[in-house]
Computed example of a mutant assay.
Amino acid sequence: MLNESSPSDVSVTPIPQLREAWQRLRENEPGLRARDLAERLGVSEGELVASHCGEGVTLLQGPWPELIRALPALGKVVVLTRNDSCVHEKNGTFANIEIGGTMGVVLDEAIDLRLFLTHWKHGFAVVDESRGRSLRSLQFFDGDGRAVHKIYRTEESDQAAWSALVSLYRAAVQSPLLELRTVANPLPQLLWDDAVEIDTLRAGWRALRDPHDFFALLKKLRVTRTQALRLVGSEFARKVGNNAIRIVLESAAASGLPIMVFVGSPGVVQIHTGPVHNIKAMGPWLNVLDNDFNLHLREDHIVESWVVQKPTPEGPVTSLELYDAHGTQIVQLFGKRKPGIPELEAWRALAVGLPDVEATHA
């Protein structure tokens, strides 16, 4: 549990007490996942996992780039990246890994990741025995105990390679205590709207040549994403109804339009590229339930939806972007594209045709 009076926040919940509370809650509500269990117990998910070191949990140590480069040996796995409102799962293999410093990419056709390794602070190998099955995973957490990425073993994984990797990166000291540190917001809102140089924002936006340069523009001008979208004007950003994501997914499923779906944690952006097929709403969750790609989105967390265009030498690149009540990006969608190739006209027509937020309330 975070102790805000200390610059180096350390778990203050006694480990036996935390384990007992976890077991009792899990028995009473067996459907709860680790993230929900941790929230109910008032600790981070990382703390909850660490508390079981020696009981199905093995603390791992880096260097993380070396561990990541060893992942292709595992064969087919399931990778999972999530934020507070959206879960992104892909089946595939690790390949084409490039890491330089604290940044990296995985560029396999199925597993497509952008890695920000400053947020990979804690790692564990987890064996979860529940509901009559044994689920094995590698789980990585930020300094504040927030999950940044998980890798699950499948029946098609190389079991021996998995065991060897866990043994190789097993930490010498298996401590159930997780030292937590506050993680700074990478893009804090430092200015009121009327202090933003809007002409400079628009000029910088107009001068973009690569969508990847967008974050640098925001950081330079000290504005958040939603602040920039609100201020830049209709040339580049248009607010649409929060049913836009359902319209897009259902339209793409009906037409076979290939799309790109980006979901990020602080340490990973995970990408699906291709068609989507089985779209299903269940309670507050809007889901994509395909063989090799699952998406689980809390529609009730969507506060703002924007159609955004950024210039490139090949023409504009159009995205649908969803944000929660804190201005945190939930998910971002594009049409399938490669650098240097214009975006699909069918995707642009779908995104541009989404009704304005005012029209959805008429």
Rank of each mutant, 00 (worst) to 15 (best):
F262E: 02
G256Y: 15
V317E: 10
E89P: 07
R230C: 05
T102C: 00
P65E: 02
P63F: 13
F124W: 13
Q309D: 09
N242R: 04
M260Y: 01
H52C: 06
A203E: 12
V148M: 07
V357W: 04
P188F: 07
E89N: 10
E4S: 06
S234M: 06
D108T: 07
L201K: 04
V248Q: 07
D356N: 01
R206N: 10
N91T: 04
E314A: 09
R230I: 11
P176K: 08
L41T: 04
L71A: 11
L218S: 11
C53F: 02
V183H: 01
V232Q: 03
V49W: 00
H212I: 00
T273A: 06
G340A: 02
P284I: 02
A73D: 12
R82Q: 13
V269H: 04
L37F: 04
G104Y: 05
H122P: 05
K219M: 06
S265Q: 10
Q227K: 08
R131F: 13
G274Q: 14
A207K: 02
A164Y: 03
P275N: 09
L354M: 14
R230W: 09
V77Q: 08
V248I: 13
V196Y: 00
F334Y: 11
A346T: 07
H361G: 05
G31T: 05
F140T: 04
V263P: 01
V166Q: 09
E197Q: 09
S44W: 08
D144P: 05
P211K: 06
Q332A: 01
F214H: 12
E4I: 09
W120T: 09
E314G: 04
N287L: 04
V12R: 15
E250L: 01
W306L: 04
L187T: 12
H272E: 11
D36T: 15
K76F: 00
H149Y: 14
G274M: 05
D142V: 15
P355N: 03
L231D: 08
G204Q: 06
S134Q: 15
R202P: 09
R153L: 14
L320E: 09
T154Y: 12
W306H: 00
V12L: 14
L80V: 06
N28K: 10
A228D: 06
N294V: 00
L218V: 13
I247E: 02
E345M: 06
H277W: 06
W64Y: 11
T360D: 13
L37P: 04
L18P: 01
G335Q: 04
K219R: 14
Q270I: 12
R133C: 02
P186Q: 12
E314N: 15
S157F: 02
T226Q: 10
W22L: 08
D144C: 08
R225G: 01
N185G: 00
Q332S: 02
L138M: 12
R136K: 15
G204E: 05
H149S: 05
L322E: 01
V268Y: 00
R153E: 11
L249W: 15
W306Y: 00
L32D: 05
L190I: 07
P72G: 11
A254P: 01
E343M: 14
L2W: 08
L333W: 00
D213I: 05
S255C: 02
L187P: 09
S5Q: 15
D290I: 01
Q159S: 15
V77G: 11
D36S: 15
N83T: 03
